[in-house]
Simulated assay, not measured.
Amino acid sequence: MRKNMVLVFLLFSFFLAASAGNFNQDFAITWGDGRAKVLNNGQLLTLSLDKASGSGFKSKNQYLFGKIDMQIKLVPGNSAGTVTAYYLSSLGSAHDEIDFEFLGNLSGDPYILHTNVFTKGSGNREQQFYLWFDPTKDFHTYSILWNPRTIVFSVDGTPIREFKNLESKGISFPKNQAMWIFSSLWNADDWATRGGLVKTDWSQAPFTASYKNFNAQACVWSSGSSSCSSNSSGSSSWLSESLDATGKERIKWVQKNYMIYNYCTDLKRFPLGLPTECSVA
């Protein structure tokens, strides 16, 4: 009996590995009228934007906690006015959400990586960064670690931001609502580039972003319960993972050299006092 259970587990682990990165299996195109395409037998997905419409996709599964990686190559050239969004979200007015948004640029200017965390419908926790590479030249890995202890945003394995579970301090943390993975490419020239001063140059359309190598070690939510995957060694260590000393030092390096906005230092925006997590995190 034990041997059979081991065999079943090994087969299940193989299925997880085999299905990782297959967009046909893991995602559904949700809008765009043909502007989103799954290519290479499910190994590549592209989103495009023109003056008529953008496009987007959504995971077939909902997740309640996970360690989720996606490799993305962003819109090249003059992408001013465009936004490529990649995020986890539940639905409804009291939704939870964990955001990566890439704000387009004029040719030669850096992209802005915009991050945010919503809990029970409330966001206003923006941090923004420049990247230390050109994200349009090649694919780079953008990761979200979300477990009961923390949320960590990472780029190519380098953590750039952490949002800890501080419920003991009266701060909401997203842990009760399962979320889908979404991504979209859309026109936001009313705010995306220099606060809307630079408009989308439609002569550059169609704009295209590309995705590959999706991978999720995660708890899949279905019918009111979750089933959590393990890695090839049978470990679910990501469920209790948090930043070690090295990770904390890397965050300090990124935030010192590449952070361009932090809501926790914006006294003009919060004249009555900064959000509580800013002083206790």
Score class of each variant (00 low, 15 high):
2 R>M: 15
2 R>Q: 11
2 R>A: 11
8 V>W: 14
11 L>S: 15
14 F>P: 04
16 L>Q: 15
16 L>Y: 10
18 A>W: 00
21 G>K: 04
22 N>L: 08
23 F>A: 01
32 G>Y: 01
34 G>Y: 11
40 N>K: 05
43 Q>K: 13
43 Q>H: 08
44 L>D: 01
47 L>S: 05
47 L>H: 13
47 L>I: 02
49 L>G: 04
50 D>R: 01
51 K>W: 01
51 K>H: 07
56 G>N: 09
68 I>L: 10
69 D>M: 02
69 D>H: 10
70 M>L: 11
70 M>H: 00
70 M>V: 02
71 Q>H: 01
73 K>L: 03
73 K>I: 10
74 L>N: 08
74 L>K: 04
76 P>I: 11
76 P>A: 01
77 G>P: 02
78 N>Q: 12
82 T>P: 00
88 L>K: 00
91 L>N: 12
91 L>E: 09
92 G>E: 09
97 E>A: 07
97 E>L: 06
99 D>R: 05
108 G>I: 13
112 I>M: 03
115 T>Q: 03
116 N>R: 00
121 G>S: 03
125 R>C: 11
127 Q>T: 09
129 F>D: 02
129 F>C: 08
131 L>I: 04
136 T>N: 06
138 D>M: 01
140 H>N: 11
142 Y>W: 01
142 Y>M: 00
144 I>W: 05
145 L>C: 01
146 W>F: 03
147 N>A: 03
147 N>Y: 09
151 I>H: 10
153 F>Q: 08
154 S>W: 04
155 V>M: 04
162 E>Q: 12
165 N>A: 05
172 S>A: 15
175 K>S: 11
177 Q>L: 08
178 A>V: 13
180 W>Q: 07
184 S>R: 04
187 N>I: 02
187 N>W: 00
188 A>K: 08
190 D>E: 08
190 D>W: 13
192 A>F: 01
194 R>V: 12
195 G>D: 04
208 T>W: 02
209 A>G: 02
212 K>I: 03
214 F>Q: 08
217 Q>G: 06
218 A>E: 06
219 C>S: 06
221 W>V: 12
226 S>C: 07
227 S>G: 05
227 S>Y: 06
236 S>T: 14
240 S>N: 15
243 L>F: 13
249 E>Y: 06
251 I>V: 13
252 K>Q: 12
253 W>P: 02
254 V>T: 13
256 K>A: 13
259 M>Q: 07
260 I>T: 09
262 N>M: 07
265 T>N: 14
269 R>Q: 07
271 P>K: 06
271 P>T: 00
272 L>I: 00
272 L>H: 14
272 L>Q: 09
273 G>T: 11
273 G>M: 09
274 L>T: 05
276 T>I: 14
277 E>L: 02
280 V>K: 05
